[in-house]
């Protein structure tokens, strides 16, 4: 695997470290191009976690990658921002894009109909057929840029440029759980019923967050995701098979 070194990270950037109170340290990477910054934040999270596993850090409570920075939440009774900065600075100089094994997930999606109420309008706006949209949406391999908003919600980047559209002018008060939606260069799947302003094109038959599972979250940062179309019969079958444990999502590394 190519090991890209984030050499463009400036040595003396005065906004490298920002404060989130006396309990959060932001490692800011916005001197990099946006997509590189996202990768750099994830890569730094990976390095810090590895160091934590070796007990090289104490007092870190959580590490939260953002699109252009990494938030390190710490316990001020155990460590300080100054101590953390001292350990993190040398990590930045050696940062590569290695985030460990990347998983590839094949995600079934039932496009259109009642599951994709925005598909026809989207087709009109974009001047292409609904089938074209579905074909383009499944053609690209997406990458989970960050997680956030709700448990298990992944912001997946890499949507075909022909499908780029801003969010809906008026957000919906309620989007059904497991709806697949697009806006700009991204796809999201809503893990729960929630308000939402993205264009809804389909629905998946499996849960993104399942509290009864040992590992409740299906998707994670850096995962590669490819959608494949299923019809309503397959949707119903997979949904019931998933519930009884007879259907497993395809994950390869």
């Amino acid at each position: 695997m190519a090991m890209f070194i984030f050499q463009q990270l400036q040595q003396d950037y005065d906004r490298r470290f920002l404060s989130a109170g006396g309990h959060g340290l932001v490692v800011n990477m916005d001197d990099l191009p946006a997509d590189q910054a996202t990768k750099a934040a994830r890569a730094l999270a990976h390095v810090i976690k590895a160091a934590m596993a070796e007990q090289a850090f104490s007092g870190i409570e959580d590490i939260i990658p953002g699109l252009t920075n990494l938030l390190v939440q710490y316990n001020p009774l155990v460590t300080t921002a100054a101590t953390l900065k001292q350990s993190i600075r040398p990590m930045l100089a050696e940062l590569s894009d290695d985030v460990g094994a990347v998983r590839h997930i094949r995600m079934p999606c039932c496009y259109g109909g009642e599951f994709g109420p925005d598909l026809d309008e989207l087709a009109n706006t974009l001047g292409m057929s609904a089938d074209d949209i579905i074909a383009k949406h499944q053609a690209n391999t997406l990458e989970v840029a960050i997680m956030g908003f709700l448990p298990g919600l992944a912001y997946m980047k890499g949507v075909d440029e022909a499908l780029y559209l801003p969010r809906r002018k008026t957000p919906r008060a309620r989007v059904s759980a497991l709806s697949v939606a697009i806006a700009m260069d991204q796809t999201v799947i809503y893990p729960l019923p929630s308000p939402g302003g993205w264009h809804i094109i389909g629905r998946i038959p499996v849960e993104l967050f399942d509290a009864n599972k040992e590992e409740p979250v299906l998707l994670k940062s850096s995962d590669k995701v490819t959608f494949y179309p299923i019809d309503i019969n397959e949707y119903n079958k997979i949904k019931s098979d998933y519930k009884s444990g007879r259907f497993l999502i395809e994950i390869s590394t």
Binding site: G21, V26, A34, I64, G66, L67, T68, N69, L71, Q73
Partner: peptide, 10 residues
């Protein structure tokens, strides 16, 4: 801003 993490108290 580009979406990022939040601590309690932000």
């Amino acid at each position: 801003i580009a979406s990022d993490g939040i601590v309690t108290g932000s």
